[in-house]
């Protein structure tokens, strides 16, 4: 659980309160639930800051939540899951209890800023992939809460891993657009973590970057094989020593999902959703790199300075 900001608290008492708010706010910001998924409610809350209004408008235009609802349609939850975009007062002012998943407009602002800095050909990939990843990540935490799922490991990483698993369930195009898009965001926005910053409950961008690449590769070693290849003896995007763990990591999440979440999924409905040809970004087509060509853009900068206050790296004890 992350910190709840006062700005958020007023609107997060319960899923019911949010649903009610959706009904009374400007129609432009409210979306009624589709008949196919009555337990998943979505809402675009109007931001109070002028600065965030154009961002909210763009998010609404993208219809991110409407699309997301379709993915979650097979889910049969004992109580409602509400997913909202709102102004939080910070990118991390999130609380996923009471069946509420929140994505902050401030985070969207950050994603847009980072996307603006990448190669124009990859911009749409970063924007769409990261947005969808964030929605899955927050929804995963809300599902943990609603279903009282036992969560071993840190909750934030668990949410990334479940999000990665779910994003791999709808074909390699969706898996590519979401996970590689998000990985590009992490590598582009990755800051240097030092000292007590490591006390954070969430993980550094560099770890999230590799975790998503690993889930992608673990889910589909053929499509994502290029991540493990490098020309001229350079280190591949996903180092071999991690890549060998990825199918095991993916399998672990798949098993956990089967045991703890699958009982709440309508299997016939799931088949229909998976059979749907999904395409996340309709405005820009994203070219997947040929498998023979290592995709330079997903590579992190060589030896990015993440220097900390300690002398030695990858000490032997690190292998514990």
């Amino acid at each position: 659980m992350r910190r709840v900001t006062p700005a958020l608290r007023y609107a997060t008492k319960s899923a019911f309160a949010v649903a009610l708010l959706c009904a009374i706010v400007s129609p432009a910001y409210a979306v009624t639930p589709a008949p196919s998924s009555p337990q998943v409610l979505v809402a675009y809350m109007p931001p109070r800051s002028d600065r965030l209004r154009p961002i909210a408008d763009r998010v609404i235009k993208r219809r991110v939540l409407e699309e997301f609802k379709q993915f979650l349609a097979p889910l049969r939850l004992p109580r409602a899951l509400t997913i909202q975009f709102t102004e939080c007062g910070g990118v991390t002012g999130l609380n996923n209890q009471h069946g509420l998943a929140t994505i902050c407009y401030e985070l969207v602002e950050q994603i847009e800023r980072v996307a603006a800095g990448v190669d124009p050909g990859m911009r749409e990939l970063v924007l769409t992939g990261t947005l969808i990843q964030d929605v899955f990540h927050e929804a995963a935490k809300a599902v943990f809460d609603i279903l009282q799922v036992p969560v071993w490991g840190r909750e934030e990483d668990a949410a990334d891993r479940l999000a990665g698993f779910l994003m791999s369930e709808f074909g390699s195009d969706v898996a590519y657009q979401t996970m590689i898009g998000a990985a590009l965001f992490f590598v582009t926005s990755g800051k240097t973590w030092t000292g007590s910053q490591f006390a954070a409950a969430n993980s550094p961008e560099a770890q999230r970057y590799y975790n998503y690449l690993c889930m992608a590769y673990g889910s589909d070693p053929k499509t994502f094989e290029y991540l493990t290849k490098a020309a001229d003896g350079a280190e591949p995007t996903l180092p071999q020593w991690r890549a060998t763990q990825c199918s095991g990591e993916f399998e672990q999440v798949r098993k956990a999902f089967s045991l703890r979440i699958m009982p709440y999924v309508d299997p016939d409905f799931l088949v229909r959703v998976r059979a749907t040809p999904w395409s996340l970004s309709t405005s820009v087509s994203v070219q997947k790199p040929a498998t023979s060509v290592p995709q330079a853009r997903v590579r992190p900068p060589e030896a990015k300075p993440h220097q900390l206050d300690n002398k030695e790296t990858r000490d032997r004890a690190h292998e514990l």
């Binding site: 993980s203 992190p300 030896a303 300075p305 300690n310 000490d315 690190h318 292998e319």
Partner: peptide, 16 residues
């Protein structure tokens, strides 16, 4: 113990 000093070291499945 030390923490990683290079981006690729964060690929480790352990935390720092």
């Amino acid at each position: 113990q030390g923490d990683p000093s290079q981006w690729s070291h964060f690929a480790d499945e352990h935390g720092t």
